[in-house]
Design a protein around this nucleic acid. Structure first.
Lengths: 92, 92
DNA sequence: TTAAAACATCGAAATATTTAAATATTTTAA
DNA sequence: TTAAAATATTTAAATATTTCGATGTTTTAA
């Protein structure tokens, strides 16, 4: 279902405090998050925020959608579920 | 239940192809794995294998038990389950 | 008691990641 | 059309990770 390269990539995307914080915001917000909001939440410069969001998008944990000059992010629950499945598969 | 530092640490432990391979061996073997077996499976030197196992033990994904001069590893399903729970919590 | 086996640690090289400053691109508003 | 806003990219520095060779420690077997 999900190969090891993909598991590795998602795990790496999750292995950073800022990126975990970003993902946790989705529950608090209305299911979606704007780039500028992330910049407000994290104590990082704009390029760093951009870098972290890119990692999450490249791992496909987030889906990005352009809205004019803003970027709207949505959690990709399907990929998250597949990742969780792969972890469950480690068990007997 | 599991704080972000712990989620980060476990994710990092999972973000390496060798370590994912190690974890996947438990299903194929009789629930436990010896250090020497890992050395046979991975194309890495003994110190590298030792390093990877240490990362997994420090993340508490594996429990290590001494058996004479051998080391027996067991998958820590409780920690794995707590990690999976934390990931499920990201969803609505 | 000594030698060998199993594993850990140290030191160093190669590579990857994180971060910020500077700059570029894209889009909208005036 | 031009200026400003939102985001991306480039470059470079600091730090972390991965890997191996050499060596150390602990345990067992001879």
């Amino acid at each position: 279902m999900m190969d090891n390269k993909k598991i590795e990539k998602i795990s790496r995307a999750l292995s950073d405090a800022s990126r975990i914080t970003i993902l946790q915001q989705f529950k608090k917000r209305d299911d979606c998050l704007y780039c500028a909001e992330v910049h407000d939440i994290l104590d990082l410069t704009q390029p760093s925020v951009s870098h972290h969001l890119k990692q999450l998008v490249e791992a496909e944990l987030l889906l990005a959608e352009k809205e004019g000059r803003n970027l709207k992010y949505v959690l990709n629950e399907q990929v998250l579920n597949e990742y969780i499945s792969s972890l469950n598969d480690l068990k007997k």
